[in-house]
């Protein structure tokens, strides 16, 4: 059963230039452009892209905190954009979000118990205090927090613990979809794996669907079933997660993968890598045709002409580049080399 279908989704922001008069026309910033993907029940979709590529905006459009300006978001086949305000509100309990900055996502003036209980008290106001407290305690245990810490405040916890509080809040209503917006980027490396494993375990136990956003592929590869690569609000490539790191076809994906350093210095020095050069162009004035062409090592004059369509080059593998090719297996930490030596 397809839980979520995103069709030609656009999100455009009106941006006023600095010092503009009130009557000047705002600039259009296309943060997400013609996005298409499906998410099956119980599956995880990874979304990868550099900072500013529109990943958070995509997430916000799905949870409904920014307005989509075009396309459809089909939830169980019904379009969220045309849903009545009332239905939309009720629908909010089915989709929850986990945020990048774990501390900023928690109200500093509320206790952990109040924070975790908020979705519950919002959607089920008639549940008794005792019942709420019990559920909060259970949820805290489930995410690895001591339930006797319910009366503490967020600033008394470490980053990893704060993220667990955020996870508990997101899961207390038994949602069907959880969107994780770079949930581990702000955490210490040692804690990242713990949080990712916790998410994986909870997903299995609760049968959740997930959208997992990250700026590099190393984390996404571990957790997602399919992966989608974004650049400047456009979709570059989409494939089964292992397939994507094993045989990336889009020049941008290839560059992304090769930018992950290999811990082994010998292999690191020996490998051949297309590097990403230059700056991300301004989203207010994206390059014509293929938006990646200003940084693409394989760009040719043709690329400026028209936006490349997202072609299915193999079953389930979509690429937005007519000149895509499989390159010789890249030696990267992601491509699962033979057992590490020693």
């Amino acid at each position: 059963m397809t839980l979520l279908q995103v069709r030609d989704l656009d999100v455009t922001f009106d941006v006023m230039p600095r010092g503009a008069w009130p009557w000047t026309k705002p600039n259009k910033l296309q943060a997400v452009s013609r996005m298409n993907f499906d998410l099956e029940e119980g599956q995880t979709l990874g979304v990868v892209g550099e900072s500013g590529s529109g990943k958070s905006t995509l997430a916000r459009a799905i949870i409904g905190t920014v307005e989509a300006t075009g396309g459809q978001i089909l939830w169980d086949g019904t379009d969220l954009r045309t849903m009545s305000a009332r239905d939309r509100r009720a629908h909010r309990r089915e989709v929850q979000m986990i945020f990048q900055d774990p501390l900023a996502a928690l109200n500093p003036r509320m206790t952990v118990g109040e924070i975790i209980a908020e979705p519950l008290t919002t959607h089920q106001p008639d549940v008794s205090k005792k019942e709420t407290r019990k559920k909060v305690g259970e949820m805290m245990e489930r995410v690895g927090l001591l339930p006797n810490l319910v009366n503490r405040y967020p600033h008394e916890f470490s980053g990893g613990q704060c993220q667990r509080i955020g996870i508990a809040r997101a899961l207390i209503l038994d949602p069907r979809l959880v969107i994780c917006d770079e949930p581990v980027s702000a955490l210490d490396v040692s804690v990242q794996a713990q949080v990712v494993n916790l998410l994986k375990r909870l997903q299995r136990e609760m049968g959740l669907s997930m959208i997992f956003i990250a700026h590099d592929l190393s984390v996404v590869k571990h957790i997602s079933d399919r992966t989608l690569v974004m650049y400047l609000g456009r979709q570059m490539e989409q494939a089964e997660a292992r397939e994507l790191v094993r045989a990336p076809r889009h020049p941008y994906t290839q560059a992304l993968i090769s930018s992950v350093p290999i811990p082994d210095p010998v292999r690191e020095a020996a490998r051949e890598r297309p590097v990403l050069e230059g700056e991300l162009p301004s989203p207010l004035d994206p390059p014509s045709g293929c938006v990646f062409r200003t940084r693409c090592p394989k760009a040719r004059p043709d690329c400026a002409r028209a936006r490349p369509p997202l072609d299915e080059v193999e079953p389930g593998h979509l690429v937005a580049c007519p000149y895509q090719e499989v390159i010789s297996p890249l030696d990267t930490p992601l491509s699962e080399p033979a057992e590490p030596v020693g």
Binding site: T65, R93, A104, L106, E118
Partner: peptide, 16 residues
């Protein structure tokens, strides 16, 4: 701040 976004996303009403 993200905690306000979290509240909106959960469906907490504006006065609340």
């Amino acid at each position: 701040k993200e905690f306000v976004e979290a509240a909106i996303a959960t469906g907490v009403s504006t006065p609340r």
